[in-house]
Write a protein that binds this DNA or RNA. Structure first.
Length: 505
RNA sequence: UCCUCCUUAGCUCAGUUGGUUAGAGCGUCGGACUGUUAAUCCGCAGGUCCUAGGUUCAAGUCCUAGAGGAGGAGCCA
């Protein structure tokens, strides 16, 4: 049994393969089946001249998503995505499929999410999940090669590690328990045992966020390194991101093409150094006081607004033109084609208008940004808009960062944290920093944050017995997948997403 | 928690200032066509206009409440 991805090794050979019929088109004497088998997609042709009447009739009755076993010859065809098609000689129906709900037409997001268990079979979803898989592989490869030990952290926890975000509550026998929102504190303990470690597991946050960047259940990679300061941490983050991006680029060409992802942007990410901005510099950029490439953020945004308005204008002009042609009377096929184009343009206009209405708000909130605050979504967009590679922001005001963040010796107002912001509005993909080693500072911070001291006694032990400088970070897997795939929404980057309002299927 | 928008055929959506029997495309089914890329063409079937109440001679359309959904804000990876 040959998989579709291996067709290229069997040119002009007769093989057997099996999979699902994802689409069928027919002409007189010809049936075109699009077969998928999880390894890829391939067009399979059944010609009346080449097969028995029985086989041809079976082919003509195949419905979307029926499963089949096929025998046929692999033939080169430049027009096909994989470059090869199958000339079928025999068909065996394995399982029938009646009234498959997801058709080749557009569907609304609610319908697709209700049918997520079937939506996963679609081309786009397949491509995204293949890339997710490759990313996970690359992440493990990177850390293993760098001498890290994978050590996992518990999911049931008795405490709120950062005290900031909302937790899902649960029961652990008779005790109250929560689902972990990070494994970091455990990671620190393990780094003191193993040197360099990483955890890779699910984390849970009960934030009632309804945005394209949020999930209630998501996977996080959290490395923690003994004897690292924040500069070493940032070096590692940069090397790591470059490695995984390069790996996906090299191994998922087909999938990125299916997703229509513009990969030229990734070339820079591999070759260019990521900008490292202090919080102070980032604030200057947000407020429009510091120029990047000769322009302030406000000038860039104002220019964006003009360009968006021009684009809307162009779309409207094209719509008017196309509508005139339709009104003039054309054949049905041509009319459908034009109508589809008009629908696409109208959709584009809707998105552009949302953007256009957001930009003045961004400019306003950027101009009024108050030093000492954390960045909001729009502030992140403003900063990343100025660069075409991920941006690292470090040295944050200590008040807005977690209790365990290391204070800067030279400026005690600052904490040695680092956030990495992905380009194109995909937001914060990495958060991390150097950890506080001073026992007394930690004690006062825990009190300041009103955290239950009792739950942190074990953590404080790490500072009593051979405390060393150490640092680490957390990478959100789904946000990274979303960024690399260029998906509109993070919910497409995990097989069965859990987010506010979505628990099933 | 707040703001904006949406709910009409299996799916995606039109439906004008309230007005007679609610429309289209896709999908299904039947037929035509020898290379299609969401094929195309012809035809059949398919409706509790989200729910409840109200205004009106008359409500898919207006008003009120509720349910479900989408986008954004805050919070964050």
């Amino acid at each position: 049994m040959i998989q579709i991805k291996d067709f290229k090794n069997y040119e002009e050979k007769v093989i057997e393969t099996q999979g699902w019929v994802t689409n069928r088109r027919s002409s007189k004497g010809l049936e075109f089946l699009i077969l998928r088998d999880g390894s890829g997609f391939a067009q399979c042709i059944v010609s009346k001249d080449d097969v028995s009447d029985d086989v041809f009739n079976v082919a003509g009755r195949l419905t979307q998503e029926s499963s089949v076993k096929l025998k046929g010859k692999v033939v080169k065809d430049e027009k096909q995505i994989g470059g090869f098609e199958l000339h079928v000689s025999e068909i065996k129906l394995i399982g029938t499929s009646v009234d498959y709900p997801i058709t080749n037409k557009e569907h609304g997001i609610e319908f697709l999410m209700d049918n997520r268990h079937l939506w996963l079979r679609s081309k786009r979803q397949w491509a995204v999940l293949k890339i997710r898989n490759r990313l996970i592989y690359a992440i493990n490869n990177f850390f293993q090669k760098e001498g890290f030990v994978q050590t996992d952290s518990p999911i049931f926890t008795p405490n709120a590690a950062e005290g900031s975000t909302t937790l899902f509550s649960s029961k652990f026998y008779d005790d109250d328990a929560y689902l972990a929102q990070t494994g970091q504190l455990y990671g620190e303990a393990m780094a003191m045992a193993m040197g360099k470690i990483y955890t890779f597991g699910p984390t849970f946050r009960a934030e009632k966020s309804k945005t394209r960047r949020h999930l209630s259940e998501f996977w996080m990679i959290e490395p923690e390194m003994a004897f690292y300061d924040n500069d070493m941490n940032m070096d590692l983050i940069e090397k790591f991101i470059k490695y995984i991006v390069k790996d996906v680029l090299e191994n998922c060409e087909t999938q990125l093409e299916m997703l229509n992802r513009d990969i030229t942007v990734f070339k820079n990410i591999i070759s260019e150094k990521f900008p490292r901005l202090t919080y102070d510099e980032a604030v200057e950029i947000i407020k429009g006081k510091k120029k990047i490439n000769g322009k302030t953020s406000i000038e860039v945004l104002e220019n964006d607004l003009i360009q968006i308005k021009n684009k809307i204008e162009d779309c409207n002009t094209e719509i008017t033109e196309k509508e005139k042609i339709i009104a003039g009377g054309v054949k049905k096929g041509k009319r459908n084609f034009l109508q589809n184009r008009i629908d696409t343009l109208k959709n584009d206009i809707r998105k552009l208008e949302i953007k256009a209405s957001n930009i003045p708000k961004w400019i306003e909130s950027a101009a009024n940004f108050e030093y000492g605050n954390d960045f909001g979504g729009s502030d992140e967009t403003v900063i990343t808009r100025m660069f075409d590679v991920p941006v690292m922001v470090y040295n944050w005001p200590h008040q807005i960062k977690a209790f365990y963040m290391k204070r800067d010796n030279e400026n005690p107002e600052l904490a040695k944290g680092v956030d990495v912001l992905a380009p194109e509005g995909y937001g914060e993909i990495v958060g991390g920093g150097e950890r506080e080693t001073d026992l007394n500072l930690l004690l006062s911070k825990i009190e300041e944050h009103n955290l239950p001291m009792k739950e942190f006694e074990w953590y404080l032990d790490l500072r009593k017995y051979g405390s060393v400088p150490h640092a680490g970070f957390g990478l959100g897997l789904e946000r990274t997948v979303a960024w690399i795939c260029g998906t509109q929404h993070i919910r497409e980057t995990i097989p069965f997403p859990r987010y506010y309002g979505r628990l099933r299927p």
